[in-house]
């Protein structure tokens, strides 16, 4: 591992300033992504600013019935928080289906949103990879791409966004609060994740030094009926082949409200807006679900090894919606 410096400031302003003024600095939360990538030489930060002394560890009530997840709250704590389990079951389930218990005990909510892709060519440190070394090309497009995305791809990058949590958050319209050198701002979760386009190195709109402090879950009734389903080769400790976060309100056999997001298939956590539009006011039947799923996936861009994700995603969507209705 490269030699580097380490700091552990006690206040947010210092932390932000330290990272802002040094382009080779990064925040360190649970370290489960950051230290891993430093060890394998993919991240090359010279300064780690440990933010674990900062006060963003709690899960708090929001006026209006929402919940605020502190950026430093641990995945395992949030997953087992009674309020999260009761009011945002998809969030709890997504967390518990991610990584392993040991990792979840370290990993934070803020870090989870900033985790990097699992593309093997990105991680090997030497293959052409526009995300790691802009302009070098993308080894995955014509390579071993079983795990790669079919939605939101670009000719420059097809890596899947790996987070489970983010899929649930995107379905439930969470809000990301950040503070930075220029003050604080809130970013809608769907805008927090950026399509690769021609700049896949950029994954979110944070400026150098901007710090996530909290993620808000809005107080909506439908969220309490949300669910998260993850399809994967083995039963634990693996990223999704396909995952679905969904919530559905049906009355008199008609879909009145729906939230749908996909994981494992998109270059960003994929809010399935086409499917949602198809479903609104449609009959709550398997046919509607299949039609909506097919519409969402109609724009899929498949490669040699990942074409199966299209039928897999369609089937998962249909089954999850059927169960949710």
């Amino acid at each position: 591992m490269r030699p580097l410096s380490y700091a552990r400031p006690h206040d947010a302003a210092t932390a932000v300033a330290m990272v802002e003024r040094d382009p080779a600095a990064a925040f360190l939360a649970g370290g489960t992504t950051e230290v891993d990538l430093l060890r394998i030489g993919v991240h090359r930060h010279d300064l780690l600013v440990d933010i674990n002394e900062l006060p963003y560890r709690e899960v708090e009530e929001l006026p209006g019935g929402g919940l605020r997840l502190g950026a430093l709250s641990r995945m395992s704590d949030v997953a087992r928080d009674d309020r999260v389990m009761a009011r945002y079951p998809a969030v709890s389930q997504a967390l518990l289906l991610g990584a392993s218990e040991q990792l979840r005990n370290m990993a934070t909510i803020g870090g989870n949103l900033c985790q990097r892709v699992r593309c093997g060519y990105f991680r090997d440190g030497i293959s052409p990879c526009n995300k790691r070394h802009p302009g070098t090309g993308c080894a995955a497009i014509d390579g071993i791409n079983r795990g790669h995305a079919v939605l939101g791809t670009s000719p420059h990058c097809i890596a899947t966004h790996p987070s489970d949590l983010a899929v649930a958050l995107v379905a439930l319209d969470a809000l990301v609060h950040v503070i930075g050198p220029g003050g604080s701002r809130a970013i809608a979760i769907d805008d927090f994740f950026v399509l690769p386009g021609d700049a896949p190195q950029r994954e979110h709109p944070l400026a150098q030094g901007e710090l996530i402090v909290a993620v808000d879950l809005p107080g909506e009734v439908i969220a309490a009926r949300s669910t998260y389903v993850k399809v994967r080769d083995r039963q634990s400790y693996e990223f999704a082949l396909v995952s679905v976060a969904a919530a559905l309100t049906v009355s008199e056999g008609v879909v009145r409200d729906v939230r749908l997001a996909l994981g494992g298939v998109g270059t960003k956590p994929w809010r399935a807006r086409i499917a949602e539009a198809e479903l609104m006011d449609a009959p709550a039947t398997r046919e509607s679900y299949e039609r909506a799923a097919a519409a969402e996936l109609s724009g899929a861009d498949v490669r040699r090894y990942n074409a199966f994700k299209v039928p897999l995603a369609e089937r998962t969507i249909a089954r999850v919606l059927e169960r949710a209705s």
């Binding site: 080894a139 390579g143 071993i144 083995r234 693996e238």
Partner: peptide
Amino acid sequence: NRMDPRQGRWSATSLGDYLVPVNAD
């Protein structure tokens, strides 16, 4: 494990990518 024939390197070189059963299986 698969070779990427263009590079002649294994595609999986970690226990995250080369899957073996876990207790849950």
